[in-house]
Write a protein that binds this DNA or RNA. Sequence first.
DNA 1: GATAGTAACTATGATAATCATAGTGACAAG
DNA 2: CTTGTCACTATGATTATCATAGTTACTATC
Lengths: 163, 163
Amino acid sequence: MPKRADLSDTLCPVGRSAELLGDRAVLLILRELLFGRRRFELIAANTGLGPQLVSARLKMLVAEGVAERRAYSERPLRHDYWLTDKGKALFDVLYAMRNWSERWAYEPGETGDGPAIRYVHRTCGADVGTAKICPRCGAELGYGDLKGEPSPALKAEQVSRTG
Amino acid sequence: MPKRADLSDTLCPVGRSAELLGDRAVLLILRELLFGRRRFELIAANTGLGPQLVSARLKMLVAEGVAERRAYSERPLRHDYWLTDKGKALFDVLYAMRNWSERWAYEPGETGDGPAIRYVHRTCGADVGTAKICPRCGAELGYGDLKGEPSPALKAEQVSRTG
DNA sequence: GATAGTAACTATGATAATCATAGTGACAAG
DNA sequence: CTTGTCACTATGATTATCATAGTTACTATC
């Protein structure tokens, strides 16, 4: 490829975020970080991305202020990656993607019985389905408000990736 | 590049949609289609993408059932592209991207005074800001419910692209 | 104290996606 | 019959991505 066209100077808000989010590797890494998987090797294993690509994208996310690199051990020196507030706010985007997929991206019965991931509202316990606001208590649903439970089939897939 | 890793068989809903949406060109084309710009040349001009890429992505969107190719003129034969219901449902994702950008992706004052795009709820007239549900009437906000008004600066940018 | 293990990366070469630019086909208008 | 429009396709250079292997720095085990 040639150098990718630069949209970072467009004023369009979709164009701006597309510069960051219009990249499979970035989306997959964000998924891992949002699920609380912070370690390099775990991210690489779960996403199936090569270490070089993971490394490059994590550097980019740090440079963009979306993630933060922290030492979690001094001896031996080890680092992991945490989302900043700017990064946590991307939950809404990935949640919208998840909702779209649950509705449109599976063949009937492909995920077993229910959704691929069941989300429960932490504060009231309701299964939110694919709603944007909690169907029981009406609260908005953002980062940290939901507890995700993968279906047995998805859980099996995740285990097979991490070994 | 090598063949891009295929995620279309993953059960993870984010992974599945990432296969489609983790691509700058796709996001930009969807933006155009959601804004009602259906003609090939207009899409190419507004996105800044080359015709080959636009052509390839539109074919893919049609193959995925996200868009539809229709003849809008018989003589001369001319085609344009319309979103299907599956495509219209992606509004939620792009709207979440827009909301994130409005909050996190601009320097202070960069868009002038207000947001880069002001959204008004069609049925009640409220300026929704960056809310997920209408702050006045409480309705959920989906495809077709909002009227977007670009800021003067963004409008100028759009005009400069299309000539 | 030499070997094996762990975690976070970096290096290398092959492959293919992207870009810039130019060109095509079918028709309409002047 | 030349120019213009619109939806594309063709070509070659560039470069991002993948697969695989290697590196660094330390710990744990034999």
